[in-house]
């Protein structure tokens, strides 16, 4: 019982703190790649703290409801991850957050919000099947959807699921809103999107979506960590390398359109998953 309580607390605390730090590192790394100095490491926390204490402007009260649902769902998903629950269940809970964010954006009447929301839906459409297939890959190898069994697996899963790891990389790029998949909202698309999906979230509610996003990032990195769960060192190297690659990809690619995203991610992602799954199935 106390163990459960501690794990829940860990999930609730680790999400925002680690997520914020990762985001800060991300911004510094990006700045360095562009030969800038970049903001301090704690900049994301400054931003969120500032936003939390700004005036709350509301476009449609349902948006507030949706923002709260988003953070609730993403924090529950991470807590479930820390409780070593069923991986498929965690994905479903995480999807609730993503969908609520979209519903909130659709509840505004601004065309920018709408375009962002629909692009976000297309992003969900692109990555969701792949994420499920990654989890299926875990199941085919370890015989379980439960995180306890997956973490306890005797050898690094990366060796058996290399293609699925690449697939997860695509998912991660979309979820982290990195180029070339930063279609729905991003800091650099003012001319095109204003802020897309997040256009009409403001002040404290924007802060909530940001924190919820951190929860999601940590959850995804957690799923990444499953690929090398046999020792801490391997896991750390894998995570750092993956994230570095994400930032690199973000900086060397340009934003593409949704048609390309859908066909490319489904085409490449499904093929790679299929190959890897057949391999597991026969092995």
């Amino acid at each position: 019982m106390t163990r459960t309580a501690i794990l829940i607390a860990c999930g609730l605390i680790a999400g925002p703190i680690l997520g914020g730090l990762v985001s800060g590192m991300d911004r510094i790394l990006t700045a360095r790649m562009q030969s800038r100095i970049g903001p301090p490491l704690l900049q994301p926390f400054y931003d969120v703290a500032k936003l939390l204490f700004k005036e709350s402007l509301v476009v449609n009260v349902w948006q507030v409801f949706c923002a709260y649902c988003y953070i609730a769902a993403s924090s529950i998903a991470l807590v479930l991850f820390f409780l070593q629950s069923d991986l498929l269940l965690i994905l479903f809970v995480q999807a609730v957050g993503a969908v609520m964010l979209v519903v909130g954006a659709l509840s505004s009447t601004s065309p920018y919000s709408h375009i962002g929301a629909h692009r976000e839906l297309l992003q969900i459409l692109s990555y969701e099947p792949l994420l499920v297939l990654v989890v299926v890959g875990f199941y085919l190898e370890t015989g379980s959807f439960k995180l306890t069994s997956i973490y306890a697996w005797r050898e690094p899963l990366l060796l058996k699921l290399p293609f699925l790891f690449i697939v997860l990389g695509y998912v991660l790029t979309i979820k982290l809103r990195k180029s070339p998949f930063d279609l729905s909202t991003c800091h650099h698309a003012h001319q095109e999107l204003v802020k897309g999906l997040l256009t009409d979230y403001s002040g404290p509610f924007l802060a909530l979506t940001e924190i919820a996003h951190w929860f999601e990032v940590i959850l995804l990195l957690g799923i990444c960590s499953l690929f090398w769960a046999t020792n801490w060192f391997g896991m750390a190297i894998l995570l750092v390398a993956t994230y570095f690659l994400e930032v690199l990809v973000d900086n060397i690619t340009s934003r593409m359109n949704w048609r390309w995203m859908l066909s490319y991610v489904w085409g490449v992602g499904l093929t790679l998953s299929l190959v890897n799954l057949i391999w597991l199935h026969q092995g």
Binding site: L57, V58, V61, V64, F65
Partner: peptide, 15 residues
């Protein structure tokens, strides 16, 4: 939160 949001300043969406 929704109930409290009714007390916030209501503005038109970004256009």
């Amino acid at each position: 939160a929704l109930k409290r949001a009714f007390k916030s300043r209501i503005v038109p969406a970004y256009m």
